[in-house]
Structures are given as structure tokens and as C-alpha cells.
């Protein structure tokens, strides 16, 4: 569907965290690609491996993480890169924004200094130019009285402004790919929608690719082109957001939509998914969702289901998904 080279391509990514007592199998074979101008949402609950997958793209994982597979960003093999070229990549052609701007920004430097530092590191320009660029960026992310905010410390800004400042820093070197790890989760409702709209506009204006990790279906519906639903370290469903919201394929996605509180009748219980996500120290041998799935068969508990493609551009890893004859051929 997209003839351009992907900005990022992940093949059979596996990440384990090896500890003294046990090993956490966080990501268990994930493949996807993101193209220029595309917004991919990775949707999943805590422990699904969504953030670990995102961080693998920049190799922002602790030493005890064992990464396998193939991760290519901008044509480069991230898993084989030297630390030096990784530093060139991070904040340059690929940058990242985080959930909590207060911990992602340095509390002892002003916002202007931090943004300027990034600009100087990647372009080698002088301080005055970097400051001018920082001001331009604060205006780009619609921070009011940007000139004054340049000399503010992170604690002097409200939550929404801090998040905008972090976005400004991430955009400082015109990245081709923006990685966003739940950037609106910690924000208030009226501020969350402002930041979502801002990110959507900036992404379209700059033609960036974006990978947006979230646990919130509503947020995905506001920002995604495509959605990859993760459960127990695997992508269980992938496809365009409109189709996924209207006609989810995988029983987990169906359960998630049904259990999300949104205008249900107050007279009835919510259709909750029974049970809780698996312990990834001991992941189930077959489909990760089988222990909670109403449609589970014996085969689901023994073998990982193969990917099925019932419609163009859509994938579901579930044996219950019917594939029409035409599409299967």
C-alpha cells in the first residue's frame, strides 16, 4: 500500500529481561513497519510489551535486556550500531517523548538551555543560534509568551506546558520519526485533547512518521492511522484504526472495546474480560490470551496462532478469525 521505504522496520523482535531469579519475556516476536507520514499506535495494557518495543527502536533498554531480531531505523541496523552512532540517531532523525515531562526534563536547566543543547549537539551551531531555534520551537508548539518561557525551569511550568516543551525538544532537529510513549496519559482531560490535536497537526505539517504508544482506545481513535494491538508481548491484531474500532477481529480487541466504559447502559454490568493478564515470567505456551478467551480451543493453549489476513491491510493472530477464500489465495 505504501511504496516508500519504511522509516522503521522491525522483524521478529524478542526482548527478555534476565534477572538472577527469573527472566521476563517482555516481547515475543513482534514485526511491523512505519512509513513516512504514518501514525502507528501500539495499543496495549501494562505489561503487554508496548513500551519495551518502542524503546527497542532507539535501544533505550537496560543492559540486562536481551534483544533479538532485526530493528532497522532509517535503513540502519539499530541492534548493531555503536554507542556513538546511536547518540547521533537519538534526538536527531529519531526522537522520543515520554509520559512524565517532569522526569524527562532536567530540573536544573532552563527549558531554553535544554532545547538549545540538543540543537547544538546535532547541528554544531553556536549558542545564539540554538537559542533562536529554541524560541522558534516553543512558538511551534504554541507555548504562550514563549520568549519568557525560554528562561523558565521545568518546575515553573504547568503540566501541559512542560509536555509542550518536551515536544519542542523532540522536534528540534526535524526528526523523520517521532516515538511517543503515552505522552498524554498524565495530563488532565482538557489538556490531553490539546496536546493530541497539537501532535496530530505537527505530524501532518512536518510529514513525520510517528509511533504512539497508548493504553487508551479513545486516544488511539483520535490520532492513529494504523493500530497494532499488543497482548502478552505479541501483536494480536493490526490494521487501520477505523476498521478496528468498528469491527475488531481478535477476541482480545473485542473484549477491550466491550469493557471500555463509554455510554453503556447503567442498568447493566459492563462486559468485562475475566481474569488478568499473564505473568510474563511464565508466559503461556500457546496464545497469550487463551486463558481469558471465551473462544479458546485446545489448540490455542498449545501453539501460538499464526497470523491471518482476512482483509487487505488487516491482520489478526487468532484461529477463530475466518479468512475468505479469495484473500487466502
Amino acid at each position: 500500500m505504501n511504496k516508500t521505504e519504511p522509516l522503521a522496520e522491525v522483524r521478529d523482535l524478542k526482548v527478555r529481561f534476565v534477572g538472577r531469579e527469573d527472566t521476563v519475556h517482555a516481547v515475543n516476536g513482534v514485526s511491523f513497519a512505519v512509513h513516512p507520514g504514518e501514525v502507528l499506535c501500539i495499543l496495549g495494557e501494562s505489561g503487554s510489551g508496548k513500551s519495551v518495543t518502542l524503546r527497542s527502536l532507539m535501544r533505550l533498554l537496560p543492559d540486562r535486556a536481551r534483544i533479538e531480531g532485526d530493528v532497522r531505523v532509517g535503513g540502519q541496523d539499530v541492534l548493531k550500531m555503536s554507542n556513538r552512532s546511536l547518540r547521533d540517531l537519538r534526538g536527531g532523525s529519531v526522537s522520543m517523548i515520554f509520559q512524565e515531562p517532569m522526569t524527562a526534563l532536567d530540573p536544573v536547566y532552563t527549558v531554553g538551555e535544554q532545547i538549545g543543547e540538543t540543537v547544538r549537539r546535532h547541528t554544531g551551531c553556536d549558542k545564539a543560534k540554538a537559542r533562536a531555534r529554541a524560541l522558534e520551537l516553543l512558538n511551534l508548539v504554541r507555548i504562550p509568551s514563549a520568549e519568557r518561557r525560554l528562561d523558565a525551569y521545568p518546575h515553573e511550568l504547568s503540566g501541559g506546558l512542560r509536555q509542550r516543551a518536551m515536544i519542542a525538544m523532540a522536534l528540534s532537529c526535524d526528526p523523520k520519526l517521532l516515538l511517543a510513549d503515552e505522552p498524554t496519559t498524565a495530563l488532565d482531560a482538557t489538556v490531553q485533547i490539546q496536546v493530541l490535536i497539537l501532535l496530530r497537526k505537527l505530524q501532518a505539517e512536518m510529514g513525520m512518521g510517528m509511533i504512539f504508544v497508548t493504553h487508551d482506545l479513545g486516544v488511539a481513535a483520535e490520532i492513529a492511522d494504523n493500530v497494532a494491538v499488543m497482548y502478552a508481548g505479541r501483536i494480536v491484531e493490526y490494521g487501520p484504526v477505523e476498521r478496528m474500532m468498528k469491527a475488531p477481529l481478535h477476541p482480545y480487541t473485542q473484549g477491550l472495546l466491550a469493557s471500555t466504559v463509554h455510554d453503556q447502559s447503567r442498568d447493566q454490568d459492563i462486559d468485562a474480560i475475566p481474569g488478568s493478564p499473564p505473568d510474563m515470567r511464565r508466559p503461556p505456551p500457546g496464545c497469550g490470551f487463551a486463558p481469558r478467551c471465551v473462544k479458546a480451543r485446545d489448540v490455542c493453549r498449545t501453539a501460538v496462532p499464526a497470523e491471518r489476513y482476512p482483509e487487505p491491510g488487516r491482520m489478526a493472530a487468532c484461529v477463530a478469525v475466518e479468512v475468505p477464500e479469495m484473500a487466502a489465495a
Partner: peptide
């Protein structure tokens, strides 16, 4: 959020933070 990708919110209902 509208939960409907075809009816996204285009303009924030209010600006600024509390």
C-alpha cells in the same frame, strides 16, 4: 475522545491549563 476516528475533535474545547 470521541471513540470514532471519523469524528475526531479538530479544535480544543478550551485552551491552557487549570
Amino acid at each position: 475522545p470521541s471513540m470514532d476516528p471519523s469524528r475526531r475533535i479538530d479544535d480544543p474545547p478550551v485552551t491552557g491549563d487549570p
